[in-house]
Amino acid sequence: MRVLAAMSGGVDSAVAAARAVDAGHEVVGVHLALARNPQTLRAGARGCCTIEDAGDARRVADILGIPFYVWDLAERFQQDVIDDFVAEYKIGRTPNPCVRCNQKIKFAALLDKAVALGFDAVSTGHYAQMLDGPHGPELHRAVDMGKDQSYVLAVLPPDRLARSLFPLGDTRKEDVRIEAAERGLRVASKPDSHDICFISDGDTQGFLAKRLGEKPGPIVDSEGQQLGEHSGAYGFTVGQRRGLAIGTPAADGRPRYVLSIEPVSNTVVVGSAEELKVRAITGAEATWCAPVPEPGAAVSVQVRAHGREVPARVVSLGSSTGPGSGAGSLQTLPATVHVELDEPISGVATGQTLVLYRGTQVIGSSTISATA
């Protein structure tokens, strides 16, 4: 099989590429240049698109004896990830750029280009498992739950998953580093990338302020009483406690949290920890990786990349009309999902990704549009 190995310059993608070679595939390595000006990023930046990273990936490819290329996807990354990130915050939502990058860049732009060039699949260093099931390939959690990345891959439909290889899904991270060292790969001890790759200093609020400017507005409690003023609602997210700059303490002396962000009135609403709890979630733009669950089905849900899994029940599904499998045919595609949680969770924001699981298997995902 001809495999295009996405090589970020880190240890995970390096070992994944090596394993693809060991499996007997015809492997070609590619590094995605995602920054418009990578030379402006400091060495050791949090992301995976620096010149340093490209050099690390090239050295690994040389050791593995595979061809290596750098593909410039900076424009696509700017439009589909960075611009989307800013636009979502502007309307009061909290996006996950890693989910969007996997959906639009690594398994859309990259995979489409790979297929057009005659490759059969794309290999990455994600920690997730593809297993054979009665209905075809199934996406499952990784063996190493501490590194599991099935959450950010849940936006991939079955046709894209069928062309995806995740060689590290059955391995723990510490063993990946040991293997890299044994293979003579100097990235074996390279630190993991973290946080948002295109915000190298970690200052998300400052990043957004430069692009959206100051826009003062009120901070109010759940009854509408003004408690303070903010310089931009985009600088807040649901569940936030620190940085509220409210001079008046709560009547009970307990901390306040951001409950909601209202972009039209430019208002940030705060309240108690109890008011922050969510017991039902509605998601839109659903993608299904497995047979769609019936209303009433027991599932588990996750709303953050490293958040806890919560038991839930599918209450209802909404539908839209889309292309069917036959020529010119149409089929009904579930586009929304509403779940009720067995136990409340806090800090759930619109724009986040809701992922449904059945055991370790990913059922599907949607973008959170409402909570209750």
Score class of each variant (00 low, 15 high):
Leu356Cys: 07
Val314Leu: 11
Tyr357Arg: 11
Gly55His: 06
Ala162Ile: 04
Val348Ser: 05
Arg2Cys: 06
Ala370Thr: 01
Arg186Asn: 12
Gly322Leu: 13
His126Ala: 05
Gly10Val: 01
Pro137Ser: 11
Ala114Thr: 13
Asp148Tyr: 05
His306Tyr: 14
Val122Gln: 02
Ala154Gln: 04
Val30His: 09
Asn266Ser: 07
Gly10Ala: 06
Glu285Cys: 07
Leu244Glu: 00
Ser231Tyr: 06
Ala280Thr: 01
Val187Arg: 12
Gly213Asn: 04
Asp84Gln: 13
Ala335Phe: 09
Val81Asp: 05
Leu117Gln: 10
Asp62Thr: 15
Thr332Ile: 11
Pro158Phe: 05
Leu212Gln: 13
Ser260Asp: 11
Asp83His: 09
Leu165Tyr: 08
Glu223Arg: 10
Lys277Val: 09
His194Ser: 06
Gly24Pro: 09
Ala20Asn: 10
Ser365Ile: 01
Glu275Pro: 02
Lys147Tyr: 03
Leu131Phe: 03
Ala109Phe: 05
Pro216Leu: 11
Glu138Val: 14
Leu244Trp: 01
Phe85Val: 10
Pro255Trp: 02
Val70Lys: 06
Arg42Val: 12
Pro216Trp: 05
Ala349Ile: 03
Arg186Tyr: 14
Ala14Thr: 02
Val86Ile: 12
Cys289Arg: 01
Phe68Tyr: 15
Leu73His: 03
Pro191Gly: 14
His140Ile: 00
Pro67Arg: 14
Gln149Arg: 00
Ser265Pro: 02
Val337Phe: 04
Gln331Val: 13
Pro311Arg: 14
